[in-house]
Design a protein around this nucleic acid. Structure first.
Lengths: 221, 221
DNA sequence: GTCTATACGTAGATAGAC
DNA sequence: GTCTATCTACGTATAGAC
């Protein structure tokens, strides 16, 4: 008895996902250009030729991966309904940081690698560029909201803070997974948050110490 | 009349430097694996084959570049004799940041790319690893000194702060030179320094407000 | 010292057998 | 649907002409 069309479709979908998962690992480890199709095939335990049965080209695989990673990053920002803006920022930072610690798949890593590479398929450039725009805008908005809540330094430019935070997180994601014991530790979330922390630091003489007493994790209202 | 041996040597040295300079630009733009020997030759305005007259292989060129970049980074930290530890930290950050702004050759970029690549010649791995050890140790020491001077948050772990700072700077250097108009700005030095800034922030209840009044740029003693 | 022509290997992509 | 064999393009590295 032959396989039903439905079974075939399931096999196809499963294979596709397997290949994408394998490719994500390979790309994260080596970047687009250094990743051979055979590497991906080997990581997915199937033959070289079969990969081409499911995807047109290496670029199309990479495109699919980048889209997945972008979606994952967007999801990181979107979730966490009942929290303060500040708490959502912290949660996002923590998730990303945990992934780096686990040595697992850091979505930011793939995208950052893609951005650094000279040759990205043109359609991808646009998508990546848009992604960064969205990411940065959302973080800046969230920072602004947290400033209104009094959880973040109110006198700093939110766009500026967002840039610094994004830089830091990108640098974090860049730690090579095959160099697990680098001489310096992964900074704690507390340390990262120093960037945003309100302070009555000396250079700021306009405000004395009012709302600071509430603490950075205080719930608003 | 033939060229003197001395002239020949000068030509050789000059060519070598030209090739290295061209290669540095190419590597910074595309990374090791995407850089073809012909790219380097074209960037240096000479033929493909001549590159091999001066270097054994692409890897050996890359090795020379990485060494140059490492030396440049080390130099950034070494200089500035008459300054405070804190002032030297600031100067280093500013130099690196200026290079990124100029879109020029950011040494950290090449090294970071190298680190992220899966395949680095083995001897290079060691050198890069050592470099990071030195870099981090020096920064941590300098931070510690600045803490004693009262210019940096005294209750934070210097190693921790150094890690965060290195991450941030690495993320900064990663901006693609061919994407000059990213939606977010390069963070100002002030903003970067928020990581280190002393503060009488709420979560820290042990110290009240003593030394903070001196300001972060105050000369010690 | 500099170039052009060429050998060799490798990786992307296709074709056809099972 | 899956594999192996093959074509083709390109990049590293070398050899030899000028």
């Amino acid at each position: 008895m032959p396989r039903s069309p439905k079974d075939n479709q399931e096999i196809r979908d499963a294979r596709r996902e397997e290949i994408l998962a394998a490719a994500a690992r390979v790309f994260a480890a080596k970047g687009l250009s250094q990743s051979k199709i055979s590497d991906i095939a080997a990581a997915a335990n199937l033959s070289h030729g079969l990969v081409y049965h499911y995807f047109d080209s290496k670029d199309s695989i990479f495109g699919a991966i980048v889209d997945q990673m972008i979606a994952k990053i967007d999801a990181d920002l979107a979730s966490d309904g009942e929290l303060t803006a500040y708490q959502r920022l912290v949660a996002g930072i923590e998730r990303s940081r945990d992934r780096v610690c686990a040595g697992g798949l850091e979505p930011g890593r793939v995208v950052a690698q893609a951005m650094m590479q000279g040759v990205i398929p043109d359609h991808l450039r646009g998508r990546i560029h848009e992604h960064f725009g969205r990411l940065h805008r959302r973080i800046a908005e969230r920072i602004e909201e947290a400033q209104r809540d009094g959880d973040i330094e109110p006198d700093a430019d939110p766009v500026e803070l967002a840039s610094a935070l994004v830089c830091l997180m990108r640098g974090l994601s860049m730690r090579a997974p095959d160099m697990p014991h680098l001489p310096f530790p992964i900074p704690r979330t507390d340390t990262i948050l120093r960037l945003l922390r309100p302070s009555s630091a000396p250079q700021d003489t306009r405000r004395a110490t009012p709302r600071a007493a509430r603490g950075p994790n205080a719930r608003r209202r």
